[in-house]
């Protein structure tokens, strides 16, 4: 397993330099303009894409086949992508918390509570995005999986758009409803979705060998 994590870490350092730099820029921008939701969202979104992009590089280099000749179990070959995704999202979360704290200290943000709710909401959304993305890629393959994922993101964006434009009160109500679940509950649901998708992806991977 150590070898797989090391390999994916090398890939992230090599292929995600620009995304890491842009995400870092957005983290800094969050500290300066903490009310800007887009700056909060973008690094989370990039982090949730990392596992799927790694899968696509694996397929292109035929590492997906080569790794099956090594002493790894199907569960390990799938799990490494989830581990990379969780680490990436966790790093972004911590960076964002630091950014918000800096913002508070500088007097640009008013209260941390509101931002923690937003960060947890993003954690929840990215958990869903990442889970859907990886599961679908193990199910349909990288190419079809990517199309499916774009469709899911587009559908999500459309729903959010309709909620915020069609009825001014709907999106805040929706967010209010989610915050009513309590922030911890939301994060727990996200983790539960990751766990379920993780198990499903292992099953799909085993079946894909046919």
């Amino acid at each position: 397993m150590r070898g797989l994590i090391l390999k994916d870490s090398y890939m992230v350092m090599r292929y995600f330099k620009i995304q890491i730099a842009v995400s870092l820029m957005f983290v800094v921008m969050t500290a300066v303009t903490p009310w800007n939701l887009y700056c909060l969202f973008f690094p989370f979104f990039m982090a949730s894409l990392i596992p799927a992009t790694l899968l696509s590089y694996d397929e292109r280099s035929r590492w997906d086949e080569y790794s099956r000749t090594m002493p790894y179990s199907p569960a390990q070959l799938v799990s490494v992508k989830y581990i990379m995704g969780i680490i990436s999202i966790a790093v972004v979360f911590v960076a964002m918390v630091v950014a918000v704290l800096v913002s508070l200290a500088a007097g640009w943000a008013e209260s941390i509570g509101e931002y923690i709710v937003q960060l947890c909401f993003l954690l929840f959304v990215c958990s869903i995005f990442m889970s859907v993305n990886i599961t679908v890629m193990f199910w349909l393959g990288v190419e079809k999986g990517r199309i499916f994922y774009v469709a899911v993101v587009a559908a999500f964006g459309s729903v959010m758009g309709v909620l915020s434009v069609g009825n001014q009160g709907a999106l805040p109500k929706f967010l209010g409803m989610l915050s009513g679940l309590r922030t911890a509950g939301l994060v727990l649901i996200g983790f539960l979705v990751i766990a379920l998708s993780w198990l499903l992806a292992i099953k799909l991977y085993r079946r894909k060998r046919t």
Partner: peptide, 9 residues
């Protein structure tokens, strides 16, 4: 394997 399978980077 015929394509080896090591990532290009």
């Amino acid at each position: 394997l015929d394509e080896v399978g090591i990532p290009g980077c």
